[in-house]
Each structure stands twice: as C-alpha cells, then as structure tokens.
C-alpha cells in the first residue's frame, strides 16, 4: 500500500515502539513544575475562563430578569429575579419539540458525518488512488462559495427532491459544511498513525475495510472526538439553512426556534437568553464527555490494541 507522503517526521519516529507508558512521564512533568509556574499557569487559565464565560454570564443573568430590565440605563447583576422566563420557554412555546428536533438532526449529522469523513479521510491518507489530491482541493472549494448565495439554489434542489420542511434536508445541508472539514482533519490525524500498524493488520488477514474499522479508527479516538464535537455543534447552532428550509413550528431546530424570540421590533430578550442557557447546557455536557477521549491518544490506544 502506498503510504501518504504527507506524514510528518514525528510520526516516523514513533512508528516502532509506540507502546511506552506515558503516565510515568506526565506525572514527572507535573511534579517538576515550580510553584511560581503553577500560579502563572492557573492564573492565565482562570483569566481566560473568566473572559470565556463573561458574556455567557450576561446571558445567564439576563435570563433571570424580566424583559424590561435587560437593556437598561442602570447596569445591574440582578433585578427582580425570576424564573418565569424559563417556565414560559418550557411550557408556552414549542421548545421541547425544537429540542428533540435538534437532537435528532445533530445526532444524525454527527453519525453520518463522522462515518463519511472518516472513510474519506482514511482513503485519502492511505491510498494513492487517482483523484486523491484533486479531491482534497475540491473539499476546500466547497467551503469557499458563500453560503448566502448557495441558499436559493439549494432550496430549489431540495424542493425538487421533496425535502423542504423535513429534517433530512437539514442533515444533508449540514453534512456539506461538516464533512469537508472533518475529512481534512481526520486525514491529518490518520497521516500521523504509523502505517506499520496497517501492514501488521494486513498480515493478520484484515482487508482494507477491516483494517480501517478495527485498527485505525480506534487509534484516532481524539480526532474522532474533535470532529464529532464539531459536527454536533455545526448542526446544533446553525440558523441560515434552517431558516430557509424549515417552515413549520413543529420542525424548527433550537437555534432557529430561538430566533423567533427576537423579531426586529420588540425582541423578547428574556426568553432568548433563557432558551440560550437551556441550549448551552447539553452542548457543554456533550463536550464534557467528549473531552475524556481527547486525552487518550495514540499511545494509550496503542497499548490497548
């Protein structure tokens, strides 16, 4: 099997004994950090975290205020604190339905997207087939044409396929955003997985599909976690396609549903912020679980396999 020339030198260095115990090294690293360095490290991270959650804190605090207190000439943290915005969003609107729709769309986009981009990325990384390099360029080109201009023609195509106001329309549209990036990303990771593992698998009698599925994919766990999270969030937060292709309230996704709260005149900031908090929590949870897979990298996977 011809091996991709794009493999970085570092990967060659590990090609052989990739099974060292990483834990010993990392623990040593921690014990050697001086107290001053620790303070600096944690200080920087705390500052960064504060900046990261600052605007989110504004969203959270706003969601606890009545509408008139959100934009006001007096800046306050709390004013007339109430949970009624949440109960309104949860009971008076179709929010639970939107939530379900979003979960369905995001889950399918994630599953199909990962599968398609992993197979594509693997093929491009491992096989020197004709059309390999143009394919990567083609993926880039798909990202270059502005979405705003693509919406009308895509609508026409989806209308011909009878997919307007259905969830498959959104899943397909989101795949066009997610797959090119994920294929690129996964190809990069696959490049750094030594081909000696593939060859070993081939000697054991694995075909190319089995090698990919049973050997390489498990090794690429961190990459799969990153791309999974990316596809999930792409589908979770997208508005432009949803607002064009979805027409009835019971098919809305969350992000698009949220937009209903802020019409041009008389926006309901209190409901928008409350709903935004409810939307952010599951996304945060998904990441919390996905991030565990970020740590178990090549070596850990190698140990298991």
């Amino acid at each position: 099997m011809s091996r991709s020339t794009a493999t970085p030198p570092t990967a060659d260095a590990v090609a052989g004994p990739a099974l060292a115990d990483s834990r010993r090294v990392t623990r040593a690293g921690r014990s050697r950090r001086s107290p001053a360095m620790s303070v600096l490290l944690h200080g920087t991270l705390i500052l960064a975290s504060l900046i990261a959650i600052g605007p989110i804190a504004w969203v959270l605090l706003s969601s606890l205020k009545p509408g008139y207190a959100i934009q006001s000439s007096e800046l306050t943290l709390f004013r007339d604190t109430t949970l009624s915005n949440y109960s309104y969003v949860l009971t008076e609107t179709n929010f639970p339905r939107w939530f379900l729709n979003s979960v369905i769309v995001a889950a399918f986009t994630m599953a199909i997207g990962i599968f398609l981009s992993a197979t594509t990325g693997y093929a491009v990384s491992r096989f020197n087939f004709p059309g390999r390099r143009p394919l990567m360029m083609v993926f880039l080109v798909t990202q270059m044409f502005p979405v705003a201009i693509l919406i009308v023609p895509i609508y026409t195509i989806l209308a011909r396929l009878g997919l307007i106001n259905t969830m498959p329309a959104l899943i397909i549209a989101y795949l066009t955003i997610a797959v090119p990036f994920c294929a690129w990303m996964l190809k990069g990771y696959f490049d750094s997985i030594p081909t000696s593992l593939d060859e070993a698998a081939a000697l054991d009698g694995c075909g190319p599909f089995a090698t990919f599925w049973r050997v390489v994919l498990p090794l690429a766990r961190p990459a799969v976690a990153v791309t999974a999270f990316y596809t999930f969030l792409t589908a979770w937060g997208e508005v432009a396609y949803a607002s064009a292709f979805i027409q009835t309230d019971n098919k809305f996704t969350l992000a698009y549903g949220l937009q209903q709260f802020v019409p041009q005149f008389n926006p309901q900031w209190e409901y928008l912020t409350a709903a935004a908090v409810l939307v952010t929590i599951p996304a945060g949870l998904v990441f919390f679980f996905a991030q565990k897979h970020l740590v178990s990298g090549l070596t850990a996977g190698g140990t298991k396999g």
Binding site: I151, V152, Y155, T156, A159, I164, N165, A244, Q247
Partner: peptide, 9 residues
C-alpha cells in the same frame, strides 16, 4: 420569495 420561486413551500 425563495419558496414561491421554487413553487414549493
């Protein structure tokens, strides 16, 4: 307009 142009939706 998008929907009317596509004659759907």
């Amino acid at each position: 307009k998008t929907a009317a142009q596509a004659k759907t939706g």
